[in-house]
């Protein structure tokens, strides 16, 4: 695609989606739950894009910041219930990191409802559907994130 064609594109145009919700999920629980949801034909919003991580403990805060600065309207993080981490404490590390990140998002003008951390076990396909549906509708209420169109420094 040449530059001028590229310029005419609008965010979401290629997918026909009004929202971009990124779900950064743990391989051992939430991703497996998504598999289960698929097998049992449970639907979740098509605006959600799942990105699989080996553990929520490997989600650097920069990944989350990058999602928002590149125009994500919401970032969902799904990990194992406390005590169930495949690597013992990755989910707990993710939790304390996100706790510390929230004031930074606030300073950047990103409402805290745009970032959600949930614990979803491998067998909780139904919970995955509910959480992603609920989160997406909450993000929709906030509207598109302003970083999407903004020329950032």
């Amino acid at each position: 695609m040449n530059t001028q064609d590229n310029l005419k594109r609008h965010p979401g145009e290629e997918t026909g989606q009004d929202l971009n919700v990124l779900a950064l999920v743990c391989n051992w629980c939430t991703y497996t739950a998504a598999d289960l949801a698929g097998v049992t034909r449970l639907k979740y919003p098509t605006q959600v894009k799942l990105i699989r991580f080996m553990c929520t403990g490997m989600i650097d805060v920069r990944y989350i910041l990058r999602c928002f600065l590149e125009g994500a309207d919401g970032v969902f993080i799904g990990g194992c219930h406390p005590g169930d981490c495949h690597y013992l404490s990755g989910n707990l590390k993710a939790r304390v990191r996100i706790k510390g990140l929230r004031p930074v998002l606030e300073m950047a003008g990103i409402p805290e409802q745009r970032l959600r951390l949930s614990w979803i076990g491998a067998s909780e396909g139904k919970k995955l559907q509910e959480e992603l549906t609920g989160f997406t509708s909450e993000v929709r209420k906030l509207g598109p994130a302003s970083f999407r169109q903004m020329h950032l420094v």
Binding site: T3, N6, L7, R9, V61, R62, L65, R66, L69, G100, L101, P103, V104, M107, A108, Q149, H151, L152, V153
Partner: peptide
């Protein structure tokens, strides 16, 4: 070029918002 094309222009050096927010996320505590 890809990033410039997406919004019509790209300020250089890039990613300074990312730099400041990263520093905040790493060191604010």
């Amino acid at each position: 070029y890809d990033r410039g094309a997406r919004k019509g222009s790209l300020r250089l050096p890039t990613d300074l918002t990312m730099f400041h927010l990263t520093r905040l996320a790493h060191m604010a505590h």
